[in-house]
Design a protein around this nucleic acid. Structure first.
Lengths: 338, 338
DNA sequence: ACTACTTATTAAAATATTTTAAAAAGTAAA
DNA sequence: TTTACTTTTTAAAATATTTTAATAAGTAGT
C-alpha cells in the first residue's frame, strides 16, 4: 500500500492498545512522529477496521482532541494453558476482554499435543473469529520450542509453535507459565520500567518469573527463575526448606522465603515481589517482611504483595496473544471466511 | 545544519566506534537507513573531522567498499577513579587508546571532591585536548549523583556529575566501580546480548556488577549486586563466609562462592561469571565449578572465567566516556581553543 | 586480454515526513 | 455575547529519505 510505514503501524497499535494513548497529539509525542504522519496511518487502520474514532467531551483548555481506540470486535484470540490432567482455555477479543472460558480433561498418561490439537480444532470451528493462539506451559520454552518439560514428557523437545502454526495457519506464541504470569501482572499494573519477580511456591517445587526493566529474563540455558535449588542453609536448599510446609506457613518456611527475598534484594534489588495470593496471607507477608528486615536494611526490601496467580497467568497469555496481533502486517491479519 | 538527523549521526558514531562496522553497505543494513542517507551523514562527520575515509584492498567479489573509521585524534577523554587514599587517572583518545596514566595521593581524612577538582584542573591545563570526563567510584550512583558511599563520607549525597560539569563545562559521566567493570569487560569481548556478572571478593566485603541482555541492573534502591548479605548457611551470609579467607582459597570459601554461583545460575542463569583474576586462580575456578556441580546440573553453570579487574574497570570508564562523546550534538563537541 | 559476474557508488526520480501557517473548535472570563 | 486565549486539525510548502536505474570498479575464469 502506498505510503505505509509498517513499523509505525505496529507502534501505533501497541501505543493505543497497551499504553492506552488515545489522542493524536499524544501519539505524536510518544512515537516521535509528526501529527500528519500519525493521522495518515491512523486513517489506514480505521479503514482497515482496526480502530474507531470518537469525538470526546473532555478538554484541557482548547479544542478537545478526538479519541482513538482499538475495536474490540476486530479479532478474537484463544489462550490455552496445559495442566497435568486438563487443558484450560479462554477466548478474548481484540482489547483483551474475556468472552468465554472452559477446561477440557486430558486422560492420565495420554500425550498432550494431540488433545491440544483436537481442542483447538473444535474451538476454531465453534468460533470462526479466532485468529491467533497463545499457549502456556509449565516448561522451559525458547522461541516457541519446548526445551525441558519434566512434567510433560510428551512435550519434551517439541516445536509447539511450529506444529500449531502450520496446523492452523495462524500466528502462535508459546510461553512458560511463570513468564506469562509476570507479564500478565506487569500489564495489569502499568509499572512500565520496573523490575518484578513473581514467586510461586507450588506443590511440586517453587518457580519464579523475572522481569528486569520491563524485559523477561530467560537465562542462557532457560534455567532462569528455577529457585528451588538455591542453597540457603547448611544442608538445605530453598526447595527443601519449604517442602514440608502446610497451608498455614510455619516459621521455617517464613524464614526460607525471607532468605530468598533477601537474596533477590541483594542481587536484582527489584521493586516488587509478587506472591500467589492463594499460597500466602497478608499476615504471612508481614512476617516475611519483618524477618527479611533482620537480614537486610528495610529500605532495600522490595514491596511484597499478593496477587491472583491464575488471573495473572491468563492475562499474560492474553497480552502475548495481543502482542502477536499488533505485529501482523496490514491486511494480512484476518482469517478471511471466503 | 540542513538535512541533519541528529539521531542517525549518533547511531553512526556508535556503530563505527563500538560495533566496528566500517562500510556503508553494512552501516546501511545495521541502522536500516538507505545508502545515500548514510553517505550524506558520513560526509558530514568527515567534514567535521570525526571520521576518516580509506580505500581498502579487501573485496568479497565485486568492487570493494570504502572503509570508514573514527579519527583517534578527534578528541581526548579523561577517566578518573577514586580510591581511599588516591585518585587514579587515564587519558585516552577518541578510539579508546590509552595515552597516559597516573595516580595522585589523597591525604587521609581529606575530602575527595576538592582533590579531584584540583587534579582535573591540572590535567586539563596540561592537556587541552581533553573534552570529556568519566569518573568511577565505589559507591552507588544514580544519574551522576552519589547516593550511598560508606567508604567516602565526603561524597555522600553529592551531585558529582553536576559539580564537575558546571565547574569544567564538559560532558561528565559518573559510575559505580563494579558497573564500570562489567561494562568494560562486555565492551572488550563483544558479547552483545549476553548476561554477565562480575564478581569482586574485595578486602572489605564483596560486590558485583550485573548486566542482563546488555543492560545494567541498578535496582530499585541502588542496591543491586550487594551480594555480601546473601544468606547462605544456617548462620552465615556470603560476606561472612568468605571474610576469613587467605590469599589461597580454603574449602569453606570455595563452597561459599559455589553457593553464590548456584544462586545466580538458579535466578538469572547468566552466560558468564567473571572473577577478579588476582583473587582466584584457574585451579580455584575448577574447584568452584565441580563444587557447584554438586548443587546444580552442569549444563546450567555459567562459564567461569578470570579477568583483569583494573583493566576492565578502566575500559568501562573509557567506554562510558566515549559513549558521552558519541551522544554530543554535531559541532558542539570540541573545547575550542579560541 | 577479454568476458561474465559481483558489488559499490552516484545521480535522478519518486515518496514520505516534517515544518509552517492558517483555519476550526472549543474554554473561560469580562 | 463578545473577546481573548488554547488547543486541535487541515492544507500547503519545504525537507528528507528511499527507490530505481545507470555507472564505476573490482574479481575470476577462459
Amino acid at each position: 500500500m502506498a505510503g505505509t510505514n509498517t513499523d509505525l503501524v505496529i507502534q501505533l497499535r501497541q501505543a493505543i492498545l497497551f499504553q492506552r494513548i488515545r489522542t493524536i497529539p499524544e501519539l505524536s509525542r510518544v512515537l516521535s512522529a509528526s501529527f500528519p504522519t500519525v493521522k495518515k496511518h491512523l486513517d489506514l487502520l480505521i479503514a482497515h477496521g482496526e480502530i474507531d474514532e470518537q469525538v470526546s467531551e473532555l478538554s484541557n483548555g482548547g479544542r478537545p482532541a478526538k479519541q482513538y481506540q482499538y475495536r474490540a470486535e476486530y479479532a478474537q484470540g484463544l489462550a490455552l494453558y496445559l495442566e497435568l490432567d486438563a487443558i484450560g482455555f479462554q477466548i478474548f477479543d481484540a482489547v483483551g476482554t474475556n468472552l468465554s472460558f472452559g477446561t477440557e480433561p486430558v486422560e492420565k498418561n495420554q500425550p498432550h499435543v494431540p488433545a491440544l490439537i483436537r481442542l483447538i480444532h473444535r474451538l476454531l470451528e465453534q468460533n470462526p473469529h479466532i485468529s491467533f493462539l497463545s499457549v502456556g506451559v509449565a516448561a522451559s520454552v525458547e522461541n516457541g520450542q519446548v526445551f525441558f518439560a519434566p512434567d510433560y514428557p510428551s512435550l519434551q523437545q517439541v516445536d509447539l509453535k511450529g506444529v500449531l502454526a502450520s496446523q492452523f495457519d495462524v500466528p502462535v506464541v508459546v510461553e512458560n507459565d511463570m513468564n506469562a504470569a509476570v507479564i500478565g501482572f506487569h500489564e495489569g499494573h502499568q509499572r512500565s520500567q520496573q523490575s518484578l519477580i513473581y514467586l510461586y511456591l507450588g506443590k511440586n517445587g517453587p518457580g519464579s518469573g523475572i522481569l528486569i526493566n520491563g524485559q523477561l529474563v530467560r537465562g542462557s540455558s532457560h534455567f532462569a527463575g528455577e529457585i528451588s535449588v538455591v542453597p540457603q542453609y547448611d544442608k538445605k536448599t530453598f526447595g527443601q526448606a519449604i517442602a514440608r510446609r502446610q497451608t498455614a506457613l510455619d516459621p521455617q518456611t517464613i524464614d526460607a522465603i525471607s532468605r530468598l527475598t533477601t537474596t533477590f534484594a541483594a542481587t536484582l534489588n527489584p521493586h516488587l515481589l509478587i506472591f500467589n495470593g492463594s499460597e500466602v496471607t497478608e499476615h504471612d507477608l508481614e512476617q516475611i517482611r519483618s524477618k527479611t528486615a533482620e537480614y537486610i536494611p528495610e529500605a532495600h526490601i522490595p514491596l511484597l504483595i499478593r496477587s491472583h496467580w491464575e488471573t495473572d497467568y491468563l492475562n499474560g497469555l492474553t497480552r502475548l496473544g495481543l502482542q502477536l496481533l499488533t505485529e501482523q502486517p496490514l491486511s494480512a491479519n484476518r482469517r478471511t471466511s471466503s
